[in-house]
């Protein structure tokens, strides 16, 4: 795996861990009616440590002469950026439309909700970027030594 692929897997792993925790905490808060803590706190800590520990793996090269990114990597990143930007526009537009219809034009939302929404959208766009990168590399990019 080259650095671009590793970066994409890394982002996707961060997104998945975060999504898992958000779902778990939401269930705890609104279904089980208790404050998040206990096991999920340790899972969060382990996930965070795993992400930190994998930092060296991102920097590790396949060979001493391997470039950080070659022409194909740059092309793949450019296409992924286009997909991510398009998804950002679509997500924000859909969200605004949904809030307008569901809540009405004069409704107001608390600032903390806006912050959470912004981070959520950011992570979602990052996930779209990562998936697009990995999709473009295809199966041959992971192992294809012949």
């Amino acid at each position: 795996m080259n650095r671009t692929q590793k970066g994409a897997w890394y982002s996707l792993a961060c997104f998945t861990i975060l999504l898992g925790l958000v779902v778990w905490w939401t269930v705890q808060l609104f279904v089980m009616k208790e404050r998040p803590g206990g096991v999920s706190r340790y899972i969060a800590m382990l996930g965070y440590l795993a992400v930190l520990a994998s930092g060296w793996w991102l920097r590790k090269k396949q060979s001493r002469h391997e470039p950080d990114a070659d022409e194909r990597d740059k092309m793949i990143k450019k296409k992924a950026l286009t997909a991510a930007t398009t998804s950002l526009v679509l997500i924000v537009a859909s969200l605004l439309l949904y809030m307008y219809i569901a809540l009405g034009p004069d409704y107001s939302i608390p600032v903390w909700a806006l912050v959470i929404l912004s981070f959520g959208i950011g992570y979602l766009v990052l996930a779209v970027y990562s998936v697009t990168v990995l999709f473009q590399y295809g199966r041959g990019g992971i192992d294809g030594e012949k």
């Binding site: 396949q62 470039p67 070659d70 194909r72 590399y137 041959g140 990019g141 294809g144 030594e145 012949k146």
Partner: peptide, 10 residues
């Protein structure tokens, strides 16, 4: 060639 192995594979 100064590229990654994945590019040569592709």
């Amino acid at each position: 060639a100064g590229v990654t192995r994945q590019t040569i594979i592709a």
